[in-house]
Amino acid sequence: MPGLKTIIALSFVLAIGFLLVILSSALWKNYLPLLVVATYVIAPIPNWACGRYANPDDFVDSAGSVGLTDFGRFCTGFLVVMGIGASKFNPYITRVDRAHTAMIMSIIGGLLIYGTIISFSMFFQREEGF
């Protein structure tokens, strides 16, 4: 059972992630790295939506639901790598030097945020299921 400590630690990690991303955009007055956060926030959505739509406990029509679940997972994997890939374009678009620092900061911050979302959903799914 996830206790209070888990929640506090997760919220700290989330805050550090947001701090990194906001710093990476605000320090150089270039707000495009915020798109990375948007990508990581949408990333689990196809997985959840397809998993909820295609109920895996339903053994009657398993073929179609398996395909849907796979599609959701494929989209999630796509979006996670897209978060890293999109921040790579930052040095092309901006003229500022230190754009690579901003890129690395936004990648680390985005990964922290995504990890928080995933571990949060894992902890609380395990508690309610079975």
Partner: peptide, 20 residues
């Protein structure tokens, strides 16, 4: 399946990177 999505995205972004 996750790996497949990640690989597809990586390939796609290699090309987008080249066009940018």
């Amino acid at each position: 399946v996750y790996l497949a999505g990640a690989l597809f995205s990586l390939g796609f972004f290699f090309f987008i990177d080249a066009s940018v």
